[in-house]
Design a protein around this nucleic acid. Structure first.
Lengths: 230, 230
DNA sequence: GCCGCGCGTGTGGTCTAACCACACTCTAGG
DNA sequence: CCTAGAGTGTGGTTAGACCACACGCGCGGC
């Protein structure tokens, strides 16, 4: 076993045993190196991996924001991993879109009508109804709306996967937007569909909401010219 | 931007532009450090992250197995990320099981009846029918059977997520097995259910297969004592 | 007595230079 | 012709140094 993996396992053990929890701080790199009898370099390599996985956040200086703190951001890990593998062209974008439809349909049909996240989603829709909204701003709100729907289903894993899928193809999606023949018409349609989805969920019509979401996403990508199977 | 991120972005760019593909080799660490005008330390930190993400494999010595080679193993990245976040107790195991049901049901209903992966799945079932099979061996084949079903749906993202979900809870699952009141009876039931699922897929009854898969998984965890919502 | 500025201290971030283990490859000797 | 050894290039690891940063204590002026 390589040295940095030893450090990694030690930290994972501390997490499993509850000796290290979210919000807690790792020992300083130099201290940890001495404790585990390895070089600081190896400690740093382990911490880098944890950072890439969204498990810790490293901050210089001193005070509450400094040091290496345990966080929990599964979306970051999954997102960058997916993005890298899309770059290697071993994960087709069409598969990502298909998976997004699958997860989001499920979330729509399992979202609880009284979920607090839906209130936030409704507020986002109001913002999107503003006139003369810039395309990028609209798309940013769109992402947040869809993530809010996913959160409303109350499954942390699904939420994280949804977020990572969105993150891995945001670059792709904004390029696709340029293909749209008439943005204003598309935006108007998207707005209407969003309201339809939210209403369906609030009326406890999970199956209907799932169908609307699937049609919403597939319609957008089809209009923008991405070819994919369903 | 931190130095190792510069290296990371450079490599990601090479991947996106196709200058670096799966099977290709990165320049030697010392060479890369000189090219990008950074220290070898920073190059190594970037490579460590890529290694953790399942994008490269590093090997010492010389020859075809040596050097840093581009691979593509999304499952590794997602799996270790999920496992770490389960350790922080910010990803409930019940959510993982629920997501597994969701993905696997979808895969069962979208698997093509003539998919070559199903042939492999059938062979696995034959092996599992052997008498006096050790529990661990049975479970290992079980994992491969379920992954084969996921692969049969032809979506790389779903396959990777399925694999990572299994990986993140294998430790948990094998502990659960000890709770089973009568392993032989359970194993017999699992075998029968497996055959039922495979038959449903081969008869082009996707909806039926999905229902059977969901019941199969939920039944197992319920019997083993994991409490979770559906 | 109170306020504010500056330095001390500890943090992660980076770099250099060296040595190790490994696995292939070339070459000299039998 | 074959084999044993030296040579070469790879990642793996370490030690030690210096940097930028940000808080917090304490000294000084007001």
């Amino acid at each position: 076993m390589r040295t940095h993996q030893l450090v990694l396992h030690w930290i994972e053990g501390q997490l499993s045993e509850g000796k290290l929890a979210v919000g807690g701080r790792l020992p300083a790199e130099r201290t940890l190196a001495e404790q585990l009898q390895v070089s600081r370099t190896s400690v740093r390599e382990a911490i880098r991996i944890l950072e890439a996985m969204g498990v810790v956040r490293a901050g210089v200086g001193s005070g509450p924001e400094a040091g290496t703190v345990v966080i929990s951001d599964p979306t970051a890990a999954l997102g960058s991993a997916l993005r890298l593998h899309v770059a290697t062209q071993h994960l087709p974008v069409s598969d990502i879109v298909q998976t997004r439809v699958l997860l989001e349909s499920w979330a729509a049909s399992h979202a609880r009508p009284d979920s607090p996240e839906l209130t936030g989603a409704a507020r986002l829709l109001e913002e999107m109804d503003a006139d003369g909204m810039a395309v990028d701003d609209f798309l940013a709100l769109d992402v947040r709306f869809h993530l809010a729907l996913a959160d409303a289903a109350g499954n942390a894993v699904v939420s994280a996967m949804m977020g990572s899928l969105r993150e891995s193809i945001t670059g792709y999606a904004s390029r696709l937007t340029a293909n749209l023949p008439d943005w204003d018409a598309t935006a108007a349609r998207l707005r209407a569909e969003h309201h339809g989805i939210l209403d369906a969920i609030r009326n406890d019509d999970g199956q209907g909401a799932a169908k609307l979401v699937a049609a919403h996403i597939e319609g957008y990508y089809r209009e923008a010219g991405l070819r994919h199977s369903t």
